[in-house]
Every structure is written in structure tokens, then in C-alpha cells.
Nucleic acid binder design. Structure first.
Length: 836
RNA sequence: GCGGACGUGGCGGAACCGGUAGACGCAGCGGACUUAAAAUCCGCUUCCCCAUGGGAGUGCGGGUUCGAGUCCCGCCGUCCGCACCA
């Protein structure tokens, strides 16, 4: 009799058994209720890291649990396989990006299989293969035909390190999201996806996503950034006009200046004949765009000498400035300044001595002068505002918009922060954009019959830039319309396009089209999506857009791709630093009671914060050796224990040891089980049923840490119970409860217990509701709200009985000292509170 | 600056609708088994005190309530997101 569970043998045995049985293959035609569980697919960097392990373990527990509760589960895996790292590897290691990527996929697939995930490998896909990206090109052409793809020249974010354009979402604090390089502005002809045409529905759709974290919904809401207000024209003293947008038309009588952005056409025009203005504009451009720089940047302006006429008073003119704090990208690139009610305008007005006039009163004050240095932006009543006087802010907004529209000089308008999605990338390792540039016919789509437009394999990476551009033949193509010599588009698609529809392709992947609508709709939307919060805006917004775009062109009747979203926390680890300030890794450090020392020299090291694992802090733990040592189940168990899944999980050696001990404890229980018998252990049976229900509830809520705690509790209870059929029966149930989390152990135990078939296909144990009701309860006895005693009484005991028992308590009698309580509160089956 | 989340033992964290705070795990302490170690098992483990009992206690200060980790008001702190968005 083996007394230890040996994962080295069991892991491989059961992984093969699942493979042989195709145990996790999803059947499109199954009559069972369908459940689509998906974790964000990985970029094939070469090795899986702890974040992957945690992410996929959570999804796996849910997928396995759903299978046990009678669902047909789709739980697929694939590879987000295009992207810059492959090109960087090509440059550094002289390997082809495709070869590098495919080798990485093979290595990572092996690692994922070694963790025993219940995945349908028959649906595996990689975005870098023509059978995937060719279908993506087809979808791109469909969107083009529908007018949702267009090309225009515009100022774009240029990453000088990656030598490519970036979307707005990919610029963080003025730096490229991958390279960290300061982004430059460049004018280029680019492909765009019309995500702004969906701004309204993407915003409204967030309200329907009640199973998404509020945080993510809020982030998307802010990103989309809807503002409603008034757009109107100011007539200028030189006979021209300038268009402005405001969300506060009510404050129009508080205006003291008009300001335009430094790159506003008006500024550009005036600068031609005004060297001082040109110099001012150049000076503003030199300023940085980082958070800190913007924070401290002084409001600066240049008085153009022009004036603008107030729309409600032909005799009232406002000076027109070019100002550094006005953004060309937002609204119309021009504003009117109301210093009393906008902080930036106030800073500006104080600096340049412009009038500061109060027009919204928070209470009694009606004087027009405004002395403070803090603008008032709250609610109130309009004052000093002619026909608006006495109105509330909201009513005044409506009144001004009404007049503007009535008199024809302005109209109510909605402005969005969201910009169209620029998808052109000047890179090789991506989906070729299926278009051809013809001198005679213009930009012509590649006919669908000619898809996929395949990436050429013979490319060089010895010089920076886009290898497709310098490929000798690839870009030369015949124009599909006139047949003349033409140039193939050499830009490729942003890899976020690839990840915008992979979940649809998982659900259905025919050879001759991107997906079969009817089949895809059976599975979609994804029932549970799990991934990191870092995709709150990027991937999750793009995928929502893509799904709605397919819906609009009649390809898919789904509006939202992910019904329920869960964002898991990171795996973290302590950091260590030597006195010299060098980061050192956990392998080189010896932890003691007092602190930590360097293993090699005994030198003391400082224990730093527990942080996200990163190469620079040297606190990365590679899952591979841990997996070799402890087996898949211990690693999986640790990933689920202790920390709530949405919070960070601090990795620790002690933690994985604890998980390993638990796996062995369960095995020892199984090892001692005899043949099924009749005698029950009433108390243990009750506990078991209570825990079946609790664990189910916890798994459904993704509260794995709580489920784990309950399983520890049950295990301890079984260990303490007297050996016999009752204990054995509880053990048989424990194994099924543990199966989603520690599946190899469970399969091994299943055999040991003499059961037939795979536990992966077994049913979740049924709960007997009668077993959930206790016939005795413990009641707390409080005096003045303080716990003084506990009583065990029959469940549902009448108030009078409980009250009498409480008063009879020795502790209570001593405290009450013979005096009757003034008041008695009885909460049935819970407590008695005696108020003295 | 704006928006959001969160503050519970030495640590990770439980605590349902306001009803016995600290489940469960880790670490620690004591013990058993062992020649010894590992493994395993048993017990203790919020703090304080005059210890079969009592007092304090969920960031701080108030409040509501018979009763507050939970609700309300005001602070403090940490983390996250956005950021000159008119």
C-alpha cells in the first residue's frame, strides 16, 4: 500500500488518460446547457509564469466544476502569437519570428498540459497562422465594405524604439506601452476602425454588464468620455470665426476670454505673420507631456490682439489668446474662459489680469467680483447673467442652448473623448492589411478569393524598420481592378485586432469562413472571462467594439462578448536588496526569524515590499521547477488558497509546502478507506452536506480561498471521525469536492476507491437539504451587548424558554445581581441580550 | 487635481440582512513518536491584568442602535485608474 501520493507518476498518467479519452472536448451538438469558460489567451513568450498558472487554474476549477454539474463546457486555449517580442528575438538571436514563436508555443503547450488543465485542445489556435489571420483579413474587408474601416492622414503617436505607430490606448503617460519610449507626433496615412461610431452603444452597453467589476466599467466609461454641451461660433474682429465647445453654456456671462490650442488652425494662420506668436507656439511644444510636467506646467497664453464678439451682446468683446492648456484633440480645440467657475481659466485670468466675474451663486452672494483662488464648480443659482438670473445651473444650460439653436448661432452637441482606433503598425510580425495601392485606381481591397495575404517567410532583420517595406518582391502586386503594377500595403494590423475575435473563432472554426454564425451563437457570449485588469481598457474595449461591429453588419447576433468578467490579482513576492542597493533573487537569500541574509556570503539583506514579480526586482519565481518538485495539484492548490482571487497572491515557499502537505493528507485518508458499508456517522454526514453546498457556492462565486478553507475543515473532521463506513462515505465525497482543484489526486483516489470511469466525468455530489438543518443551535447570551455565556438549545426553541434559560445562567445571575433586566431582546436561534 | 477601492492577530485572510470577531492556512510555542532527523500526530497561539475570572480590541474621532468590523458624519493612511477633457 503506497502511503504517499506520487505526482511524478500520477500527473502524467492522468494527463494521458484525459487526452486519450478526449475528456474535455466540447460538443457543439450536446443537449446539455452550455457553459463557455475562457481565460485571456497568452502571448507565447516561451515560458509560462505564475500569473498564467493562477489565471488558468481559476478558469480550470470553474470549467471542471461546471462539467461535474451537468454542463457542456467549452474551455479552449490558444496563442496571441503576433507581436514585437518575436521581432526583437529575431534581431537579437537571428532566428525567424515564426520559428521562435512556434517553438515557444510548443514549450508552453507542454507546460500547460503538465498543469492538467481541462482544455479542449482540438480547438487550439494561433493568431500567427494563415488559417486564423486570413479569416481576420476577411472580416476586416467586411468591415471596410460596411464603412467601418477608413484610411486618413493624421497626426499619430510614433514610438521611436519599436518604430511603429501606437493607438491612443497604447500610450501611457506619453510613453509607448511596450517600449516605454517617449512617443513622438508624426503625420502618416493610417488605417482606422470607426470605434467612435459605437461610442454611444459601448457606453450604454456598460450598464448591461452587471457581472463586470464596477472598476472596469468605470474605467471604460471614463475612457469613452461623453460630454454634453453647446457648440457655437464666435465672430472675430478680423471677419473670421472660431468654433468653441463648452459643457457649461450657463456660465456664458462669466466669460472673459477666448483661447485656442497652439496647433489650432487659427493659431497656425496668425503665426505666419507674427514671429512672436510662432516663437510662443514653439516654446509650448517643447514642454513635456508626462503627468508630473503637466501638473506643474504654468498656464501660458499669447494675446493675439483679435477680439471675439459675445453671442448675447454685440458690444461685448473678449480677447482671443493662444494658450498652452487648450487641447486641439478635444472638442473644437477652442474654448471660452470663465475664470470664476473653472480652475484653469482662473489661474490664467489671475496671471494675465483678466476679469473674474461670478455668475453662479452657492448661497447669498450675488456680487460679481470673485476674490478667491479656487474656482467654484458646484451647483447654484445664476447671478449677473441677464435673462438667466435666478435659474439653477441645469435650467440655465438648457436655456442658453435653446436660445442658440433658436437664433441659429450654435447647437447642443455631444463630444467624446474616444478616438477612432488606429490599427496600422509598421511591423512585420502581424496580420497583413489586405489592400493594394494602385496609382490609377487608388486603394483597392484584395479580393476575398485571394486571401489569405500571407506574410513572406524570407525577411531580414539586420536593419531597423519594417522588413516588409524592403522585401524585394512581396510588395509588388497587380491591381485587382485594372491589373496594372501596384504596391501592396506593407503595414500590418495592431495585434489587438487579433485578440478582438479569437473567442468567436474558438466557438466555431470552419475552414471556409471566420466562423459559423449559428454554432458561434450557441456558445456566446463567453459565460465567464478571466484575466488581468491591465486589459480593462485596451483589449476589453476593442473586443466589445468588434463584437458590436459584427453585429451591425449582420454577422453575429451578440452584443456583448463577455457576460461575466473577473479580473484576478497578481502573483507577488518579497523583494530583497543588499546594502549596496543591488536587487537579489529569492534563491540567493536565506530567510531567518530576524530577517534575511545572502546565502553565499551571510551578508544581511533588507526585505523590501511584496511586489509584482518582475525581472528588474529579481523576485520572479519560475513555476517549472516548482511543478517538477511538488506536482500540478500542489501548485494548483496553492494558487487557490488563502488570497481572494481578485487580490494579489504573495508567493511563498511555506505556502506551497502547506499545499503539498494537504494533498498528502487527503491521500492518506483515501488509503485507509474500506468497502462501502451501511453505518452512518450522523454529525459527519451533516458537516459533509453543509460543506458540499458551501463549496459549490464558493466556486460559483469564484471565492476559491473560501472553498479551500471549507475543504480543510471537512478533511480535519474526517480525520477526527472514528474509522468506519460513515467516515469512508465522507471521504468518497471529499474526493469529488477536491476534484476540480486537485484533479490528478482525485483521479488516482477514484481508482483506489474502486470507482469506474474518470472522476472528471463524475457528478458533483448531491446535497440532501434535510442534512443542512441542525436540530440544535448555540445561542449567545449577552448582558448589555457583551457576551457572558453560551447555551445549546433545540432549534426553534420558543422565546420564553430561551429567555428563562438565559436568566438561569450563573454568569448572568452574578452580573445582574438579583435585579430583573429592564429589557430582553431575543433573536431566535441566535442570541439573547439582557439590558440591565 | 478628478474618480475609485481598501484599512481586521506576527502574516495571508474569514465573519450571510447590524446579532457569539479572528473560520481556514502560514509562521511560532509546547508535547508525542524516533538513537537522531525527516515525515506524521496531539495541544496552545489577538493583546493586557491580581487569571475556574475580568478588561480592551477590527486605522483615528464622533454618532445611530438593546447590539456596529458591518450603517451615518468627519479625519488619517495605503493602493489603483485617469489626467490641462473645456
Amino acid at each position: 500500500m503506497a502511503s504517499r501520493f506520487n505526482p511524478r507518476i500520477a500527473d502524467a498518467r492522468w494527463q494521458k488518460a484525459w487526452d486519450d479519452a478526449q475528456a474535455f472536448r466540447a460538443d457543439d451538438r450536446s443537449p446539455k446547457p452550455k457553459s463557455y469558460v475562457l481565460e485571456m489567451f497568452p502571448y507565447p513568450s516561451g515560458r509560462i509564469h505564475m500569473g498564467h498558472v493562477r489565471n488558468y487554474t481559476m478558469g480550470d476549477v470553474l470549467a471542471r466544476y461546471r462539467r461535474m454539474t451537468g454542463h457542456e463546457v467549452l474551455h479552449p486555449m490558444g496563442w496571441d502569437a503576433f507581436g514585437m517580442p518575436a521581432e526583437n528575438a529575431a534581431m537579437e538571436k537571428k532566428v525567424h519570428p515564426g520559428a521562435w514563436t512556434r517553438a515557444n508555443i510548443d514549450a508552453m503547450r507542454t507546460q500547460l498540459k503538465a498543469l492538467g488543465f481541462a482544455l479542449d485542445w482540438s480547438r487550439e489556435l494561433a493568431t500567427c497562422e494563415p488559417d486564423y489571420y486570413g479569416q481576420e483579413q476577411a472580416l476586416f474587408l467586411d468591415l471596410y465594405e460596411a464603412g467601418l474601416v477608413y484610411r486618413k492622414e493624421s497626426a499619430v503617436n510614433w514610438d521611436p524604439v519599436d518604430m511603429t505607430v501606437l493607438a491612443n490606448e497604447q500610450v501611457i503617460d506619453g510613453r509607448g506601452w511596450r517600449s516605454g519610449a517617449l512617443v513622438e507626433r508624426r503625420k502618416l496615412s493610417q488605417w482606422f476602425l470607426k470605434i467612435t461610431a459605437f461610442a454611444d452603444e459601448l457606453l450604454a452597453g456598460l450598464k448591461t454588464l452587471d457581472q463586470w467589476p464596477d472598476k472596469v466599467r468605470l474605467m471604460q466609461e471614463n475612457w469613452i468620455g461623453k460630454s454634453q454641451g453647446l457648440q457655437f461660433r464666435f465672430a472675430l474682429s478680423d471677419g473670421e470665426a472660431v468654433e468653441v465647445f463648452t459643457t457649461r453654456p450657463d456660465t456664458i456671462f462669466g466669460a472673459s476670454f477666448v483661447a485656442v490650442a497652439t496647433d489650432h488652425p487659427l493659431a497656425t494662420r496668425l503665426a505666419k505673420d507674427d514671429p512672436a506668436l510662432a516663437a510662443f507656439i514653439a516654446e509650448c511644444r517643447a514642454g513635456g507631456t508626462t503627468a508630473a510636467e503637466i501638473e506643474t506646467a504654468e498656464k501660458k497664453g499669447y494675446d493675439t490682439g483679435l477680439t471675439a464678439t459675445h453671442p448675447f451682446d454685440p458690444d461685448w468683446t473678449l480677447p482671443v489668446h493662444v494658450a498652452n492648456f487648450v487641447l486641439m484633440d478635444y472638442g473644437t480645440g477652442a474654448v471660452f474662459g470663465v475664470p470664476a467657475h473653472d480652475q484653469r481659466d482662473l489661474d490664467f485670468a489671475r496671471k494675465y489680469g483678466l476679469p473674474v466675474r461670478r455668475v453662479v451663486s452657492e448661497g447669498a452672494e450675488t456680487a460679481s467680483d470673485f476674490a478667491a483662488y479656487t474656482a467654484y464648480t458646484g451647483p447654484g443659482t445664476l447671478v449677473n447673467s441677464r435673462f438667466l438670473d435666478g435659474m439653477a445651473v441645469e435650467a440655465a444650460k438648457k436655456a442658453v442652448i435653446g436660445r442658440a439653436e433658436g437664433e441659429g448661432w450654435g447647437k447642443g452637441a455631444t463630444v467624446w473623448r474616444l478616438r477612432d482606433w488606429g490599427v496600422s503598425r509598421q511591423r512585420y510580425w502581424g496580420t497583413p492589411i489586405p489592400f493594394i495601392h494602385c496609382a490609377a485606381c487608388g486603394v483597392v481591397p484584395v479580393p476575398k478569393a485571394d486571401l489569405p495575404v500571407k506574410l513572406p517567410e524570407d525577411v531580414t532583420f539586420d536593419v531597423p524598420g519594417n522588413p516588409l517595406d524592403r522585401h524585394p518582391t512581396w510588395k509588388h502586386a497587380a491591381c485587382p481592378t485594372c491589373g496594372g503594377a501596384a504596391r501592396r500595403e506593407t503595414d500590418t494590423l495592431d495585434t489587438f485586432v487579433d485578440s478582438s475575435w479569437y473567442f468567436i473563432r474558438f466557438a466555431s472554426q470552419p475552414d471556409d469562413q471566420p466562423f459559423d454564425r449559428a454554432v458561434a451563437e450557441q456558445w456566446l457570449p463567453v459565460g465567464q472571462y478571466i484575466g488581468g485588469v491591465e486589459h480593462a481598457i485596451l483589449h476589453l474595449l476593442y473586443a466589445r467594439f468588434w463584437t458590436r461591429a459584427l453585429n451591425r453588419i449582420g454577422r453575429l447576433a451578440i452584443e456583448e462578448p463577455f457576460a461575466s468578467l473577473f479580473t484576478q490579482g497578481m502573483v507577488t513576492h518579497e523583494t530583497y536588496r543588499t546594502a549596496a542597493g543591488q536587487w537579489v533573487g529569492p534563491d540567493d537569500v536565506e530567510r531567518t526569524d530576524k530577517g534575511a541574509t545572502l546565502r553565499a556570503t551571510g551578508e544581511a539583506v533588507t526585505i523590501g515590499r511584496v511586489e509584482k514579480m518582475s525581472k528588474s526586482k529579481k523576485n520572479v519565481i519560475d513555476p517549472a521547477p516548482i511543478l517538477d518538485r511538488y506536482g500540478a495539484d500542489a501548485v494548483r492548490w496553492f494558487m487557490l488558497s488563502d488570497s481572494p482571487p481578485e487580490r494579489d497572491l504573495p508567493w511563498s515557499e511555506a505556502g506551497i509546502e502547506g499545499a503539498w502537505r494537504f494533498i498528502q493528507r487527503v491521500w492518506r485518508l483515501v488509503d485507509g478507506v474500506g468497502a462501502p458499508g451501511a453505518d452512518a456517522d450522523e454529525a459527519l454526514e451533516r458537516k459533509t452536506h453543509r460543506i458540499i453546498a458551501a463549496v459549490a457556492e464558493d466556486i460559483e462565486a469564484l471565492s476559491f480561498n473560501k472553498a479551500v478553507a471549507k475543504l480543510y475543515e471537512l478533511t480535519t473532521a474526517i480525520e477526527k471521525a472514528a474509522p468506519g463506513p460513515g467516515r469512508d462515505a465522507a471521504t468518497r465525497i471529499l474526493i469529488r469536492l477536491v476534484a476540480p482543484m486537485a484533479p490528478h489526486l482525485a483521479e488516482e483516489a477514484w481508482v483506489q476507491l474502486g470507482e469506474q470511469g474518470l472522476i472528471a466525468a463524475a457528478d458533483w455530489p448531491a446535497v440532501d437539504p434535510a442534512m443542512l438543518v441542525d436540530d440544535e443551535v448555540t445561542i449567545a447570551i449577552q448582558v448589555n451587548g457583551k457576551l457572558r455565556d453560551k447555551l445549546t438549545v433545540a432549534k426553534g426553541a420558543p422565546r420564553e424558554t430561551v429567555e428563562a434559560l438565559a436568566l438561569a445562567s450563573e454568569n448572568v445571575a452574578r452580573i445582574l445581581d438579583g435585579k430583573p433586566p429592564r429589557k430582553v431582546i431575543v433573536v431566535p436561534d441566535r442570541l439573547v441580550n439582557l439590558v440591565a
